[in-house]
């Protein structure tokens, strides 16, 4: 198995990186490389140019409310200033060796996954490719057959759920300038499009509201083994308790659809009339109904949906008594 040939660029600051990105027509960003390099080795939509952010120093900020895109997952886990929900979520990612190289930005921008897509080149040749990597053949999706308009590859990264639950803002930059948006709005259907990044843009950092420290949270992840495996479903919850009652609640899911799910509306409805365990059960059922996983990950979609109930309940178990 061999890497496809590509030119690696290593700009040493952000401005140079963005300028270079503006010039190249077909390139990929690489930060830790723990997602990109395996995909390249399997010839999954490789580009002839790759811009590495390894030498760019400006994206490393880590504070209670700012998380730079190049912050290594391991450093986030070990950080004493980062939000506990982020640390808890980050600690579930992959394995410790991968966490040492992987980055926050890379995890946010993780390529979507599907067991028809994440295969070697020879394997995919034997199924005559698929929509997400069709090698110019116009191949159909293999999950939802006989169509080549909608890719349903699944978003299987963890941090996004925690960021949505914490009401984070995501910041992008490109040659033409910077922009930002509420975290959930960064993502866009479908499994090929994935997010709103324009050509030449990258994620620079994520910010949390100043009030984030008033929020506690929990992350529940469904995966077969306690290491390596991507989330088959993930539920992040964040809440604020003031004077013994629940004044804020946010819920997000990941690992179930092509983009993470923001269930804040459901959560806000629930706290209007909070009744501890009963509310949690209703909320869990609401989350289960809101999400429609497809059959392209390890566990069958019906199981993942049912487990969303359990994951939601367990994420909110601290609120049972309220």
């Amino acid at each position: 198995m061999r890497m496809p040939p590509f030119t690696l660029h290593t700009p040493d600051n952000l401005a140079k990186a963005l300028a270079l990105a503006g010039e190249l027509t077909d390139f990929d960003w690489v930060s830790g490389g723990t997602d990109l390099l395996p995909n390249y080795k399997w010839h999954l939509n490789p580009s002839p140019d790759v811009i590495s952010l390894a030498k760019v120093q400006e994206l490393n900020t880590l504070s209670p409310t700012v998380i730079g895109a190049m912050v290594r997952i391991h450093d986030l886990v070990e950080s004493e200033v980062a939000h506990p929900l982020l640390r808890e979520t980050a600690a579930t990612i992959a394995s410790i060796m991968i966490r040492r190289s992987a980055t926050v930005g890379g995890n946010i921008c993780l390529d979507t996954r599907c067991f028809w897509f994440n295969q070697t080149e020879d394997w995919r040749r034997s199924i005559e490719w698929c929509l997400k990597c069709d090698c110019g053949t116009g191949a159909d999706c293999r999950v939802i057959p006989n169509q080549n308009t909608l890719c349903v590859a699944t978003y299987q990264a963890d941090l996004a759920a925690a960021f949505i639950a914490l009401d984070a803002t995501i910041h992008l930059a490109g040659a033409s300038g910077a922009r930002s948006m509420p975290f959930a709005e960064f993502f866009q259907l479908d499994g090929v499009t994935r997010n709103v990044l324009k050509a030449g843009e990258l994620v620079t950092h994520v910010t949390l509201p100043e009030t984030a420290s008033q929020w506690n949270g929990a992350y529940q992840k469904l995966r077969l083994r306690e290491t390596w495996d991507f989330p088959e479903a993930g539920v992040a919850a964040a809440w604020r308790i003031e004077g013994g009652s629940l004044t804020g609640l946010r819920l997000a899911t990941t690992g179930c659809e092509s983009i993470p799910g923001d269930h804040t509306e459901l959560a806000m409805e629930a706290i209007a009339d909070w009744d501890g365990k009963a509310s949690i059960r209703a909320l869990a059922e609401g989350v289960r109904k809101a999400v429609k996983p497809v059959n392209n990950t390890y566990f069958p979609p019906s199981y993942r949906r049912k487990m969303l109930r359990v994951l939601t309940r367990r994420a909110l178990s601290e609120l049972e008594g309220l």
Partner: peptide, 28 residues
């Protein structure tokens, strides 16, 4: 508990790799 060679609906072996063929880790 976890290992299986999974064959897909059209007969293809879906997990010919060590990520998706689930060998127990030290945690299990």
């Amino acid at each position: 508990l976890s290992e299986e060679m999974k064959y897909g609906r059209d007969g293809h072996l879906m997990n010919p790799d060590l990520l998706d063929f689930k060998i127990m880790s030290v945690h299990e």
